[in-house]
Each structure stands twice: as structure tokens, then as C-alpha cells.
């Protein structure tokens, strides 16, 4: 992210400590992660230490500090999806690419995340690939989709 883009985000905030989390959310939505550069700039803007920002940001599982892969696959791990076999979907992605939840493939193409609940529990188990939610998934169906995406 360029300097003026940070300024654009900062201009929406007043610069009080309470802005920290919404600010980080906006940066992450823009960049996909929070870079050391972003932390430095936020620290200067809010006039708090970088340590304090890391302390807050690492508390919340939402924030990530490494660049994500190009395509994101999120397997829902909500209770309803779990009861209907969501665990198998997560494992399938895992053994197919040799990565576990929270990791990305070495070629940076695929990012594998868990979702706590995607809010469509009656359609479970669900998988979200980029923005699209796929309802009532099965392992074989997911494998086929992943092969198509490769």
C-alpha cells in the first residue's frame, strides 16, 4: 500500500486509541494482512507504541501478519457445519495441498483459512472460495472444485 493510501484510510479516523481496531480492520481489508510498515504508520498516527499495537492485534485471531495467498478457501468450522461433517472438508483441503489451517501453499496461490461461522448454518457444511459460498459440500465435490481451480 502506498503512502497516500494510508493517508486516505487515516483521514476517516480522528486518531484516538479507540480507532486502532477499526483501522487495522480497514488496512487488512485493503491489503489482506497487516505489514510491519502498516504497524509503523498506525503507531505514528495514533501516537502509541508499535508494541502496543502488536499486543492488541495479535490478540484477535482475525488479524494476520503475513501476505495471504491469491485465492482464499475458507472452510466453515461452525457447530452446525461440524455436526454435518465440516471437519472432513478441512482435512480434505489439508491433504490435497499438504497444508494445514492458517497456512498457504508454497507457490502462494492458495490460502487456507477456517471460518468461525458464515451465517448460513442450514446449508452446511459450507466452504467459501474467495467470495462465493458453496453450500452442502461433500469431500468429493470439493476435491473436484479444487482441481478445477488449480
Amino acid at each position: 500500500m502506498k503512502s497516500h493510501e494510508y493517508d486516505k484510510i487515516f483521514s476517516k479516523f480522528t486518531g484516538v486509541e479507540g480507532d486502532l481496531i477499526p483501522l487495522l480492520i480497514q488496512i487488512q481489508e485493503r491489503d489482506g494482512y497487516i505489514s510491519p510498515e502498516a504497524i509503523r504508520r498506525v503507531a505514528r498516527f495514533l501516537k502509541i507504541s508499535e508494541n502496543q499495537i502488536y499486543g492488541v492485534a495479535t490478540f484477535y485471531p482475525k488479524f494476520r501478519f503475513e501476505e495471504p495467498g491469491k485465492k482464499t478457501i475458507k472452510v466453515c468450522m461452525g457447530t452446525a457445519c461440524h455436526v454435518r461433517g465440516g471437519k472432513f472438508l478441512a482435512e480434505a483441503v489439508g491433504w490435497h495441498f499438504g497444508i494445514s489451517i492458517g497456512q498457504k501453499t508454497p507457490d502462494n496461490r492458495l490460502d487456507f483459512q477456517r471460518a468461525t461461522c458464515l451465517g448460513c448454518c442450514t446449508l452446511g457444511p459450507v466452504v467459501q472460495i474467495d467470495e462465493k459460498i458453496h453450500p452442502r459440500m461433500m469431500v468429493t465435490q470439493l476435491m473436484q472444485m479444487l482441481r478445477e481451480h488449480e
Binding site: M77, G78, T79, A80, C81, H82, T116, C117, G119, C120, C121
Partner: peptide
Amino acid sequence: EGDPGAFMNRS
């Protein structure tokens, strides 16, 4: 609404 498997508030 952090409860996984609940979507009432959201809806």
C-alpha cells in the same frame, strides 16, 4: 455474536 452456529442477530 461469536457463537458458531447462530445467526439470529445477523439475520
